[in-house]
Structure formats: C-alpha cells, structure tokens
Design a protein around this nucleic acid. Structure first.
Lengths: 143, 143
DNA sequence: GCTTGACCTCAAGTTAACTTTAAGTTGTAT
DNA sequence: ATACAACTTAAAGTTAACTTGAGGTCAAGC
C-alpha cells in the first residue's frame, strides 16, 4: 500500500477523479510533478494520488491553489508541517466565523419578529460581520 | 433606528463599505433595488444597508450571489424564511465537513510519523473527502 | 452662465481555476 | 506496417464577481 508504482495520466485521472487536463494544469502550476516521460507521455508516481487528495481537501476548505502550494516544500515531494498547521489554524478561525453566521441565519429564520432585521442579536452579527469592510475609516461612523 | 431615510449611492457605499460600482452591479443582478431616481442618480432607502449586510454574510459563508438571491422574495424587499433556514442547514453541513478537514490537517501536521500520509486516520479522511469525485463510476475501481 | 465633481451607461478588462479546441505525435493491437 | 485511440502542446474560451475606462449628464458653487 505504501509502495509507489508508475502510472500514466489516464490512470491518475481515473483513480483520483481529476481530469487529465486539470492534471496538466496542476503540473504547470507546480502543484504536482510527473516523474518523467515515455516519449511525450507523462508518467506519474502513484504518490501523486495522495498529493491530489490533499489539494482537494485544501480546496474544499476554501483555500486557493496558490495558498495550497505554499504547504509543499519548494520543488519538493514533501509537506511543510508548520505551514500546514498554520492552515489548520486558519481553517479553525473560519469555522468559528461560519458557526456565528449559521447561528445568526438560523435565528433570523426562526425569529417570529415581523422584521427580524430589528432583532438586536441579529444586528449584532451583521455589524460584526461587516466591520472589516469599514476598517479604513476608523470612527467616521458617528460623524 | 428602524426609520428608513433616503440616501444616495455614495452614502450607501460609505456606510456599507461596498463600492458604488458593485452596488450598480448588484442592482443589475436584482440583489438590491434603488427606490427611484433624482435625474439620473439612484436613490436608496437606508434599508438597503441591512440587505447588503446579509449579502456579505452569505458571501462569507461561501454562497454565490445567485444562491443568495434565492433567499429574497421575487422582486421583494423581504426574505424567504424557509430558504434562509435551508441555507443555515447547508452551512451547518459545511461546518461539519470543515471540522473534519481541520482535524485531519492538524493531525497530519502534528503526527510524528515519517510519512504521515501512511497514517490510517489521515487516509480515512482523504478517502472520505475524495469520494464524491469518484461517484460517477460506481465500483469500476476494482475492474 | 460656466466650470466642476459626482453621478450615469455600456463595454471591455481582470483573476482564478479550469475546459475546450485544433493540430500534431506515438504506443499498441491487428 | 499500419491504423487509431490516447496522448501531447498552445491558445482560446468559460464563469463568477467584480473593476476600469470612455464618454455623457447634471446640480451646485463661483
């Protein structure tokens, strides 16, 4: 299971669910690497499958391909554990935020107030969530 | 506080942090509506600010503008509570997924195994996460 | 009454992450 | 030996969510 075999792009595509065109695109971006060529044709180590799974995980977590690429050591086959831990923390903060939003939405949907937009707790969430957009003008708010 | 006043696009932009160009774009897409014009110039009810806050919330939750627009009643100023509740549930499932991913990443980053990719629990996550991509070919896997 | 600044429209440009297309090459089965 | 399916490259196209630019309008201050 931990043995790595050599496979072609079609097999990588079939085994990972990632289209061949995307695999070429990923290679171009440096996210994965082929181990060599047979004529024109790319050859991959089956290890690339784990890498692809991690990329998919990162995407599902909402990270861009560029962000994901930072967790891989330059040119390397390996993973930078510190970077990965940082991403885990980042994700953790995101989960906190999403949880607050979910609570707010749930509340808004269930709150029987005629205009739930007047509900103080919902408004608190709205304020908190839009704070970052207004950060440029410190307290111009009460001007 | 629950009084609605009439404001122009520059004020909406300043108060919400959303650029005027984006406000026009949102209006074109039907996400917000101006109450009228003064000559060429759009006039908005200050109620639009709450709407914009909700849009921002939805985006932060990862919903597309099209998805977000479904929670507003057609042409309406109001919110479809059932749709909103559905979105809250959707978000809830997303949070569950992200939590699993975070745990996996954290584990991978901390696991002292030489190749953490061999760690069974991490692999379990990878499998689970990539399942959907492979769903098209039922059990062609063992062909 | 004329300039100016803030608004307007419509079209085109931007970025990420791919997909599609066109034209060319090649390993493999016949 | 030859056909052909599956690979290759390079470039162009796609979608979402905006932003930018060019050229036009208009209320208000000098």
């Amino acid at each position: 299971m931990s043995q790595s075999t050599i496979i072609d792009i079609a097999q990588v595509a079939r085994l990972s669910g990632v289209p061949a065109s995307t695999l070429r695109y990923y290679e171009e971006k440096g996210l994965i690497q082929s181990t060599g060529r047979q004529g024109l044709r790319r050859l991959f180590s089956s290890k690339v499958l784990e890498r692809l799974a991690i990329i998919s995980l990162g995407q599902q977590a909402g990270f861009s391909l560029n962000e994901i690429s930072t967790i891989f050591t330059p040119k390397g086959t390996h993973i930078d554990k510190n970077k990965l831990l940082a991403k885990a923390h980042e994700l953790d903060r995101k989960i906190q935020k999403l949880t607050a939003i979910r609570n707010g939405l749930q509340h808004a949907a269930e709150c029987p107030a005629p205009s739930h937009l007047e509900c103080p707790s919902f408004n608190k969430l709205l304020r908190a969530a839009s704070m970052d957009k207004l950060k440029k003008n410190k307290s111009v708010i009460n001007k």
